[in-house]
Amino acid sequence: MKENLYDKLVAYIVENQDRFYRLAFSCVKNQEDALDAVQNAVCKALAHYEDLRNEDAVKTWFYRIVLHESYAILNAKKRFIPADDTHYSEIPYEEKRYEIHDDLYAQISRMEPDTQNIIKLRFFEELELREISQVLNMNLNTVKTKLYRGLKALKIAIREEDCT
């Protein structure tokens, strides 16, 4: 049973590694760190697969670990920023080789991290709001509110089904 879960987790990781990489890249914004984040996430997930009691939770569990590792890398980097530059980085570091030339995407990347993640998980990864609340350890209503406000700020017509 446990070995079975381990094998399933490995298969899930292999199948979805591109998705994890994109999510990590959209957080850390460069290739090297995104690779590190995914690698760390895979390492931790496989070391702890026994804690995953509910097989159906694999998806939200793994996204949670990817985001956690991505932010761990970002936070470690923040320590090297001089003390007077303590504000949330206004000019995100972008990998030279690849930039998404898209106004809406750029706008999303400038939003507060929670809102960014909610929008990315909802529209790019197509997770349900209930799943997002599990990934982000956040109350479902908070997720709804943040998504609603975020979309409003982006001046996007809000459809009922996106926010429920």
């Binding site: 990489y21 690849y98 998404i100 809406l104 995407y105 999303i108 790019f124």
Partner: peptide, 11 residues
Amino acid sequence: TKKSYENIPIP
């Protein structure tokens, strides 16, 4: 935007 997100190149 989702398309450009999906176009993030995979090394």
